[in-house]
Design a protein around this nucleic acid. Structure first.
Lengths: 128, 128
DNA sequence: GAGACTAGTTACGTTGCAGTGACTGGGTCC
DNA sequence: GGACCCAGTCACTGCAACGTAACTAGTCTC
């Protein structure tokens, strides 16, 4: 199997500006997990690779929450070592077009938003 | 001027299921404020009408945050009584298609999500 | 002169999301 | 017999978002 093929290219860099996006899907990591699962089922540890900065506790919470909402399924394979797979449901896949719209907005407008922010903050700092 | 023409039909009812939507724009009220401004500029108190449950403090914070991000402008008319108008910028309008995609998802899938949630919670309650 | 209107501000409290760090348990590898 | 693997759990902490309640300034109306 491929070792570290990029599941999703950007967005997972700590310096990625997507953290500033005004759109949030489910909780902080929910949208990224859904994108990571777009290409097919993944295991817990496989998800941790692209989501470098996520703590196992937080990933567990995110996955449980997505499972509760019917966006993903959790399948336990009774093997050794333990093997758990997460996969998008059709309902989870239904999120993808809306997420794509949010990402498109980001590509087109995030820079403008950040510039506006700097302008606003700069004005405040200079006025003081 | 029209007195209480519905700025946006639903979404502002306290019982509205949109509160459960997995999509969040800016902060909790940001998306709704943008929608309220879609039809044209509005005053502080005019925004409070459809957003019944919002506290003035929270609305101020929301508006300041949207202004900082360059989504709205704040114009003070030096009149009496005081008169302040909020209006979408082109950048703010650029959010509308993505917001529309999120709302479309809601119309099509919110019920399925809520059903999944009830199923999940129900299973847990019965197992205990 | 009491009250209302507009557009907020201030002080304070609660809740919940997110994060850290340590730990678990069954099995395999060396 | 110690270390490692996977897929987590547990106890705790920090902090920002959200909310309530009360209050403000200047003007206008009753």
């Amino acid at each position: 199997m491929e070792k570290s093929a990029p599941l999703v290219p950007d967005m997972f860099d700590a310096a990625c500006p997507s953290a500033a996006s005004p759109f949030r899907i489910a909780d902080k990591w929910g949208g990224m997990v859904v994108l990571c699962l777009e290409a097919g089922p993944r295991r817990f540890t496989e998800l941790r690779v692209p989501l470098q900065r996520i703590a196992p506790k937080v990933l567990t919470e995110t996955l449980r929450s997505l499972e509760r909402d019917g966006f993903i399924t959790r399948t336990v394979f009774d093997e050794n070592p333990p093997h758990v797979e997460y996969e998008l449901t059709p309902l989870g896949r239904s999120l993808l077009p809306a997420i794509a719209a949010c990402r498109e907005w980001g590509f087109a407008n995030l820079d403008a938003m950040r510039a506006a922010r700097e302008r606003y903050d700069g004005d405040g700092a200079e006025a003081a």
